[in-house]
Design a protein around this nucleic acid. Sequence first.
DNA 1: CTGAAAGCGCTTACAG
DNA 2: CTGAAAGCGCTTACAG
Lengths: 329, 329
Amino acid sequence: MSTIKEIAERANVSRTTVSRVLNNSGYVSEEVKKRVLKVIEETGYVPSENAKSLRTKKTKVIGVILPKISTETSSRLVNGIDEVLAEKGYQILLTNTNLIPEKEIEFLRLLKSRHVDGVILSATNINEQLVDEIYRLKIPFVMVGQRISGLPNVVFDDYQATRDIVNLLIKKGHKKIAFIGVDEKDHAVGYLRKLGFIESMKESHLPIEKSWIQKGIFDMKSGYNCMKLILDSSQNKPTAVVAVTDRLAIGAMQYIKEIGLSIPGDIAIAGMGASELSKFISPPLTTIDFSFEDAGREAASLLLEKINGHDYHETIRTIKYRLLERDSI
Amino acid sequence: MSTIKEIAERANVSRTTVSRVLNNSGYVSEEVKKRVLKVIEETGYVPSENAKSLRTKKTKVIGVILPKISTETSSRLVNGIDEVLAEKGYQILLTNTNLIPEKEIEFLRLLKSRHVDGVILSATNINEQLVDEIYRLKIPFVMVGQRISGLPNVVFDDYQATRDIVNLLIKKGHKKIAFIGVDEKDHAVGYLRKLGFIESMKESHLPIEKSWIQKGIFDMKSGYNCMKLILDSSQNKPTAVVAVTDRLAIGAMQYIKEIGLSIPGDIAIAGMGASELSKFISPPLTTIDFSFEDAGREAASLLLEKINGHDYHETIRTIKYRLLERDSI
DNA sequence: CTGAAAGCGCTTACAG
DNA sequence: CTGAAAGCGCTTACAG
């Protein structure tokens, strides 16, 4: 691979001059410029970004840390991020924690060592250690999906979105509503959504039986099991159920169908996330569209602002959501 | 951010020595080693990968070029790639062509300029210019999904997979089978799958009406339109249809249902790709599971072999597929 | 076992 | 308008 030195020699100029035509900076006579450009063309020379960033301290790459690589949420998010970043000539360095919390810190350091210009972190749960590390590294940073105070955040209104769903169910006449959640260590999905459920029920003076609240993990099987638990262990069967993700909801639907109950006739059900599946499953699932692409775009824009020296204070951008009412309720 | 120089000063040794303990190379006395390690610990020093790779010519990053970032195919592929790469300490630099062919060449150059150790390209159609560029860049390279002779390829048996589906339909008694394909410039999905269809029909001495073959693009709407065309313009209505992707098939199903025909009663239908949707749609769609994760893993392994100096000759790895027979036929 | 020095491929004051 | 030289943060022969 050729270097700037070779180009300089071939064009009979100094490396300085070559650098100048490469970056369109400083004065270069038209004649010399042409000559250099010609040599570059001929040789197919491509400057080393590596060497360049060693000098300039800019890499034009953004690190993205994902909790899971092949989920619809992640890919929609990355899609949004890439959309705004690509336009500005930034590349994405992708890392995947596979839901292992320690990996977040590991990757944060790794990204730093690679001198990324900034990082976007999509985490399911955050701990103190992680927060410390983020502050310590002093790198332009945006958190998406969870909120860390003092830092730029792109968040969803998990609390209100859940309330909207529960209230809709209540408006439709349901009084006995079950809830399938996840671990509350996941503050956004686990804690806030559960809180939304509980408060909405409370405000409407609706009692909640203990067996109506179940906790799963992020997959269908788990939704299936939770639904089974709810139906098997409740004296007082609920007439509706809201799950904090579509996958949980779809798993629950499977159990409901399996035991011969009808949706929404016997049990109404709603999910959250607006997965593609939710639209095609039968019956179509009522859900919340959090527009992860928007979140990605917003996170990327926010990060670029930080990189370009705008204040590094806490910023919170809340992404709009839409309630999609479909036949499952 | 601290540098090796600072660490050296603090530990009262030379940079050489620090480098040696960092890389566990050469002799360093236990005592000195401990001292250096302690300083590193205290300062939270992380070596600059950038500077390192400028010297060593290795970056430990692999470029991945995708035709589309948020498709199930892409994310399953990237998942497989990441699985084997992460284990070996490699990172992924992600680029997305959004199906714009010129971007492939652009990104190839960009990845080269970033000194990635290798690149994996998942392309939908390839042209001569692209092939030239790949050869010119002389970078460890693996192509997935399409075959380029002379290079390492990870491919699917598009031809045989399609034949399997068509033959299954024929075995079930269908004699009038329609086909929804894509542009043949996409050699794997467009050309080979169509060829498989035509040859299977031919071997069974089954005629194909011209209106039974339609060409769409990669989305549901297009499948819907193709199905409409097939049914509207055929005197002789087919009793089965095979689509080259699940999305096309699902779009087709929508039209079939819309006009009140039953699946598989009136028309049997099969897709390809084994999307998650195919399993949950009603009725569940017969399809081919190409196991894109395997393809990703295989591509990454193959690339690693190339990087580690094993011959750079043509290698073809064909990924196994499974025919998933479900209620849609 | 340890260190001085050269060099990787760029950019950028500085001088002319 | 152009170039010589220093420097970015590492590693690696080479010498001791």
